[in-house]
Design a protein around this nucleic acid. Structure first.
Lengths: 192, 192
DNA sequence: CAATATTATTGCCCTATGACAAGAAATGGA
DNA sequence: TCCATTTCTTGTCATAGGGCAATAATATTG
């Protein structure tokens, strides 16, 4: 077996024993997706736990008025998943789409369950990852209430500059809770 | 041992075997708190998994300008926890305070870990609860971006009418991302 | 490399919501 | 039961950000 070398950055030997890694890693499948491909569409059941090795992706929802609102962006090394659909086994409200050609590793739900229930450090790791997502979401949510649009953009620039380089501003705008028009004005103001 | 009867509503026999319940339930401690007591304060480490049997509570953060922003409300039957602090073992940014006299049941982190790693259905239950919180947070976060303040209030009225009855409007306002002044005007508009 | 489609900027005007301050109403003690 | 405190409402005015449409700049594709 060839060691899937990307995943060893995600699942480090410091967290897992060699035999554990030998159980975990082969359960993942490598996958390449072209730009614009959907990893998940509204109404689907999320049946995979995905890691992004290369590329960018975005999740979004369509609100009742038909507006597209970005809920998250994903870059290399990130986990890409709709937690709710995956764990509650409900159809998702989200769409997850690649924004560039992507290399991904996926683990199906049943394999996840096996690992989760049988390997203590795997479930610790899974729980930590989920809580990490919760933390990010909370931070974002509070920021939308507490900060001005300009400050939200400045924070994003500081924390995830690569997103601003690689993702179209109209998507970043909806993620920040402003229109693309306003974001454009904010950028102008900052550059002055 | 007297069966702590409230918790059997949370941990049902349909999900746990009787022996499992006999392991789980005694690990919880009953606790009464007066109105205004803090279950958690900024800087603390969340060391408990709490269930609220009776009363109301609120979590909030203080933003950099010193403004108090409600992040959640808790009513009877709800779990009250800062997931991030509890699982990542980090000091919390949140404050959780009772809004009325409360009856609570708490489980400390070490007991939680024992149950989590030793009882399969306990970890399924814990995971489901956490994901449920994630789902609510996501819904709220999207609502702040996509909906008008008035619609956010109408939704809350419909989904959690008891909160509006029992929690002061200034707290509901910050939760909805508006000022108490605006919320007051929204209420006036609705009542006309 | 042209042709087209998509994305980003800008102008003009408008609306939802905020800031501040004054009352009114409700609540909680002593 | 009265006083003090907190909460809620309302008025006036200010402003952040939206809607729409035109143009400019980029990307994409045949």
């Amino acid at each position: 077996m060839t060691q899937p070398h990307f995943l060893t950055q995600i699942f480090k030997e410091t967290d897992f024993t060699i035999p554990e890694l030998e159980t975990i890693l082969p359960k993942f499948q490598r996958l390449e997706l072209a730009k614009g491909a959907y990893m998940l569409q509204e109404g689907d059941l999320e049946n995979h736990y995905w890691f992004l090795e290369r590329g960018y992706a975005r999740s979004y929802v369509i609100d009742p008025e038909g507006k597209d609102i970005s809920t998250n962006f994903y870059a290399a090394g990130d986990i890409v998943i709709d937690w709710t659909s995956f764990f509650l086994r409900n159809p998702t409200r989200e769409n997850i789409q690649t924004l560039s050609a992507c290399v991904l590793w996926q683990l199906d739900f049943n394999s996840f369950q096996d690992l989760f229930h049988n390997i203590k450090s795997f479930r610790e790791q899974g729980r930590t990852t989920l809580v990490g997502s919760y933390f990010e979401l909370k931070k974002h949510s509070v920021s939308i209430i507490a900060d001005q649009a300009k400050d939200r953009y400045l924070k994003l620039m500081k924390e995830k500059p690569d997103l601003i380089q690689n993702i179209s501003l109209k998507h970043i705008a909806t993620y920040l809770g402003v229109t693309d028009t306003s974001l454009s004005r904010i950028r102008k103001e900052i550059s002055e």
